[in-house]
Nucleic acid binder design. Structure first.
Lengths: 242, 242
DNA sequence: AATAAATTGTGATATATATCACATATTGTC
DNA sequence: GACAATATGTGATATATATCACAATTTATT
């Protein structure tokens, strides 16, 4: 059996865990197929924590010491191409591992993650995690499915982004929150206009202009962060056209 | 042990294999750790073929029946956002599996692949491949490493593309072929100007203008498809600046 | 509740690149 | 080798969006 480098101690203190891994109701699909013994092993080598809105969960460039599981809440995955600009790659929902591709890629975190609202995370020792992958092919298969689906989803969004003009991008962004994140035509945008612009790859002023135009045209209603889609089909058409 | 749906018969005839899998000198890193028995099992359930330049290896939208291994040559991975436009996502070198993320994602091919020159490919039955993943955690781990690294590499290119202007994109494109594909400052671009433009996400005329400008400024030499980089540091600076 | 800081929305202007048209060069087919 | 088809390079023009400046609004802090 292969073992790995010792894990690094996180810099901040953990809250005591309220639920053990075997009894956890927020397991990932992959974890759900693990045996009780395997879950106990994870339980013994992991910690749960609450991260407050706006706080960094994982830094780009840092060494992966733990695999981080987003138990509840929303986070944003982003990079800073320059010190004063930020590009948001995707929004991460609950029941998702953060940085899997970085872990298996080269052990360095390629993206940063921060909490968009107060979130619960579990830090799982990577030696234990990797050992489970190597020993349990079915578990490895489920992790492969996760990494693959994340990759496909994010690629599709990037491909769309690359060939669409600003109206299509704004429409895509709105539909992303409606369809993928909240599964509702009414939702509260969990970020500033600047962050929304960073997600869809346009300037803040341009994003605001188009949002206001969609509002003036009755396609959506806006009240601060609250967004309500009135004309779904029209928005989808704008999304398709680009 | 779990087994999967029967594989579909490929539409075209295979050439007889010249080398068995255990004796193959072009194995992937993952395949290199398989036992002789496991390699014999793959050998028994796979075929080798030559695909000519310009021919499609795998169609977007098709159902995955085989995992395809690029034994030698170059291919391009692309999508067609509209019937008359094409976006090249990446260039695939030899010793790479095609469409791994689609296989593990949802069994439908999300991208198309075509040969940029005559290539050799092996078609491996996916039931056998997936069975090996489930049974051999170390093999699964290596496949995870492959999928993760592909994902990281392609994401980085997309992130760069999204925030760079045209000069940075052309510089990136040239350096991509020099550093990643050919590992040489002199190489023959294995595609038309239109395809190069499709890879970096600009119009054909704009790509040509910048290439000619780089040539006029002595940064590169161009002779048809042949490109020679004269000022690597300057090109890298342009690449960084975007 | 007052105040400071940050965010948002708007107007004006600058600029980067796409698009269009077309001549020339290169490649493929017979 | 001749000819057709495709690719390339260039000039002119259109257009989309970024940038800048700043007033108004909202949020955070005390």
């Amino acid at each position: 059996m292969i073992t790995f480098a010792t894990t690094k101690t996180p810099m901040f203190e953990f809250e005591n865990k309220k639920t053990t891994c075997p009894d956890c109701k927020d397991k990932s699909c992959a974890a759900a197929i693990l045996s009780r013994e395997e879950l106990e092993m994870i339980n013994f080598n992991s910690h749960e924590s609450v991260v407050k809105k706006g706080e960094i969960i994982l830094h780009e460039g840092s060494l992966t010491s733990h695999i981080i599981y987003l138990k509840s809440g929303l986070a944003k995955e982003f990079v800073k191409p320059t010190p004063e600009s930020e590009q948001i790659l995707s929004i991460v929902k609950e029941h998702t591992y953060l940085g899997l591709s970085s872990l298996f890629g080269d052990r360095i975190n390629h993206y940063s993650y921060s909490a968009l609202e107060d979130v619960k995370v579990c830090y799982i020792d990577i030696a234990v995690f990797i050992n489970l992958v190597r020993k349990n092919g079915n578990f490895a298969y489920e992790i492969l499915v996760s990494v693959s689906r994340d990759s496909l989803n994010n690629f599709h969004r990037f491909i769309n982004q690359l060939h669409k003009k600003i109206y299509g991008r704004v429409a895509d962004g709105i539909l992303y929150f409606s369809r993928i994140i909240y599964e509702n035509t009414t939702f509260s945008l969990p970020m500033s206009r600047q962050e929304f612009a960073d997600l869809i790859g346009v300037s803040r002023e341009s994003a605001t202009r188009v949002l206001i135009k969609f509002k003036d045209e009755g396609i959506i209603n806006i009240k601060g962060h609250l967004i309500e889609i009135n004309k779904v089909e029209l928005l989808e058409q704008i999304s398709r056209k680009g």
